[in-house]
Design a protein around this nucleic acid. Structure first.
Lengths: 223, 223
DNA sequence: TGTACATCAGTGAACGCGCGTTCACTGATGTAC
DNA sequence: TGTACATCAGTGAACGCGCGTTCACTGATGTAC
């Protein structure tokens, strides 16, 4: 059952205790992804070079090929990491709600995911950009980045909640998720690369609050 | 007054008539920008390489340095071109309105610029991307891309119109332009690089119509 | 329990690529006289 | 009107860069016996 023999275990333990640089890294794949995330934080998507990352991890420049088929595979791994982090941020924001009234709770949920989305983009611009980078080799007919499905699902859940409690009417529900997503995504991009780049935080904050208010208005009843 | 002497005129005419390749290109700067626009159409921002463009224009690879200080200057020229084209598309859409009722006219104006914005992004994805590319050497404290001011001004004008005719209340007016811009910009980006990439046109069209409807709702009166 | 051997995860040198940029230059153009 | 000369817009060779990728290899590890 236990595939590791005793002498192997002893050797492994000695290795783990030793501080000398090891020939076998132990967890190179994870270390490369971690370094890639750091690089992306510091330099954006352009920082994702296999040679540079290997250098940072302290490993020869093509050791990476044991763990990634090519550069694109590494970029994809980082993108997945970024999307997962975004998803976590949204979920945490949703979980932090404490409203009792169902309608207020649903409405604040939509604001919460929106705020979390924009907040993540501004806090982690590099990861955010990579997460939305179109892979150079588009996987024709493949599953189209399942990781992306998760933030999407959360947004849809909140909108369904808004519909269930009667705030969002059924005939406005279709495509509402695209409209909401467009709003927060566009806001994030305009802050990172557009006219709002370099604006003071309170200015951005005021604009974001206004936008979330308008999104809320756009879905609610007219009377 | 006329700075060109007669023999110079004669020589220039002979040149203009001749079909032989000329040592002096005549309008290299414009030709390079045009080639750059084409390259961006075909390959996106990555297609903007001085050597490649010089090759296309049929000129030695560093002739370009007579007209652009460096690569960034060329990219900036293309970005300006793209932003101008976007601005034109918006203006044309606004001019095409024919509603008589002031409120309806203002509301359709907002839809028109939104549709034009997204339409341009989808028709010219390369130019659109370059137009929003942050220059690598950010001009610290400079005027922050005045070309961008023009689409922004048009959007603001339409929103002012909506306020004047009484559709958009004064207290919702501040920051409304950011919210609207975020919506259409985000929609465009999601279509180009996000989850809506590769979706059929009618699907995108339906989602866009819904988003423009929601934007209209978000600004209008509640009663 | 010890050892031979297969397997796996690294190394280091090398190739070719296209790029931006600089240099010293040459051909074409415009104009003062 | 013709010519000498300054200026400008191009050429071609070269440098150095960092990259992705491949190759033949070696050291470490795990395990069958």
């Amino acid at each position: 059952m236990w595939a590791v023999s005793t002498p192997a275990l002893v050797r492994r333990y000695a290795r783990a205790v030793s501080t000398a640089p090891r020939y076998h890294h132990g967890n190179l794949r994870a270390a490369l992804v971690e370094a890639a995330v750091e690089a992306v934080r510091a330099e954006g998507p352009a920082g994702l070079a296999l040679r540079e990352l290997a250098r940072r991890v302290g490993v020869s420049h093509n050791a990476a090929y044991r763990h990634f088929a090519d550069r694109d595979a590494l970029v994809a791994a980082v993108a997945e990491e970024g999307m997962a982090a975004l998803s976590r941020a949204m979920r945490d924001a949703l979980d932090a709600r404490d409203e009792a009234d169902p309608v207020e709770r649903a409405r604040s949920g939509l604001r919460a995911v929106g705020r979390a989305y924009v907040g993540f983009a501004l806090a982690e611009p590099g990861l955010f950009r990579v997460a939305f980078t179109t892979p150079t080799t588009l996987p024709r007919g493949s599953e189209e980045e399942p990781a992306l499905a998760d933030p999407f699902a959360q947004l849809n859940a909140v909108l369904d909640e808004l519909a269930e409690v009667g705030y969002l009417s059924a005939d406005l529900r279709p495509h509402a998720e695209i409209a909401c997503w467009s709003g927060v995504h566009g806001f994030a991009v305009l802050c990172l690369d557009g006219p709002m780049r370099g604006q003071p935080a309170e200015q951005r904050e005021a604009a974001l609050t206004r936008m979330l208010e308008l999104i809320d208005r756009s879905l609610g009843p007219t009377d």
